[in-house]
Design a protein around this nucleic acid. Structure first.
Lengths: 206, 206
DNA sequence: CATAATTTTGACCATATGGTTAAACTAATT
DNA sequence: AATTAGTTTAACCATATGGTCAAAATTATG
């Protein structure tokens, strides 16, 4: 391994450690020492690679934002039908959330808690262009296939139904699933079908 | 004002200050000094009334949990019909969230972040008994009025659609509302009708 | 009014934490 | 091999923070 390769390798190691700690504990709860330990290096070296806590945090936060937000944008823009898009979003997001259940809460918590950081970031990474889907929806309304409805209400509902259960898992697992993780997994799998069906059955004019 | 009254008064003042700071910044981000300042007292006095940060935090957290969770329980238990219950939950929760938009995120964040605190609390405060509604739903299914459906999916969906928009407000406001707060308020008001209608139209067998 | 009990305060303490520095070590370059 | 540039470390620093304490101020009690 050349020096440069090793250099990049350690940077990746640091980012992995930082991601783990920041996402789980948030900016305020995260400790540079813990990140260093997790990465198997000492604190000074951590500061050598990322000048300070804020810079390191921002790297993780932007990465998280980039991995979660634009994916919706892509799907909304593609050529599939309205309901296919809802199915895709549900499927893609629930799968993503099963792998990274804490990321959305992390994003939302930091967004509320440290807005200073983000005024500019959101301008670039936080945008989606819903024009295309809105036209698709309007067309289906005009054709009498679905009832008139505010696109934003539908959109926010789909996203909410996908993401929120992961945030509320600690509560829901006790309340509705007797702390049975397997039942929870089944619930999530069924949810991939339930959400699109809920929307479809509700909007379709029959 | 007698001494006892003043005593209680200052305790309330402290709790108000603590609520504000903890809910906004979370346990890790909150500073005892800031709470003292907010309450207009000094730090030593704060420790005189609430021995330490954890005790003070717990008072606020339990209060938040008690004000948010049992309210669903009540509605689910009362004598109104299934759809009336969904309407009530939506109405009550969105109103409550308009007044306390940060509370649910606060609860969920701390629940993930400091589970040590909560193992026992949840046993008492985190329970709801969905038996009654489940029977109501089952009855309507048996009578052929609504299609067969997992109660938990419906319940989680309603809660998600109510709460999540408040958590995601910083993102949504920019993405869908051009940072227009008035438009956001209208959106929330319309949501009180949209959510029950979505469920109703979807479940009703026509 | 005098004494006891309670409440409030400023000064203080121990520790945790983000960050720095100078020296040691390693690897590339000549 | 010698020099240089880049990497890693241990020791340190300044500050923030939760928490304490003894004295002062206030309030209740005999």
């Amino acid at each position: 391994m050349t020096a440069k390769e090793k250099d990049q390798q350690i940077e990746v190691t640091i980012l992995n450690a930082a991601r783990k700690v920041f996402v789980q504990k948030g900016y305020d709860g995260a400790r540079m020492q813990e990140i260093a330990d997790e990465a198997g290096i000492n604190k000074a070296l951590l500061h050598y690679y990322f000048r300070n806590k804020e810079k390191l945090f921002l790297a993780i936060f932007v990465e998280a934002l980039e991995s979660f937000i634009p994916k919706i944008g892509e799907i909304l823009q593609d050529n599939s039908s309205l309901f296919e898009k809802i199915e895709k979003i549900t499927e893609v997001y629930i799968n993503m959330l099963k792998l990274n259940p804490y990321v959305p809460m992390f994003i939302l918590h930091e967004l509320q808690n440290h807005p200073e950081f983000f005024i500019d970031i959101l301008q670039n990474k936080g945008g989606i262009r819903p024009m295309k889907v809105m036209e698709q929806l309007q067309k289906e309304v005009n054709e009498g296939k679905i009832r008139p409805v505010d696109f934003r209400q539908v959109f926010v509902s789909v996203i909410s139904m996908c993401i929120f259960p992961f945030a509320a898992k600690p509560l829901l697992l006790g309340m509705l699933f007797n702390n049975d993780e397997a039942a929870w997994d089944i619930f999530l799998e069924e949810r991939k079908k339930f959400i699109p069906q809920l929307i479809k059955e509700s909007l379709k004019v029959k």
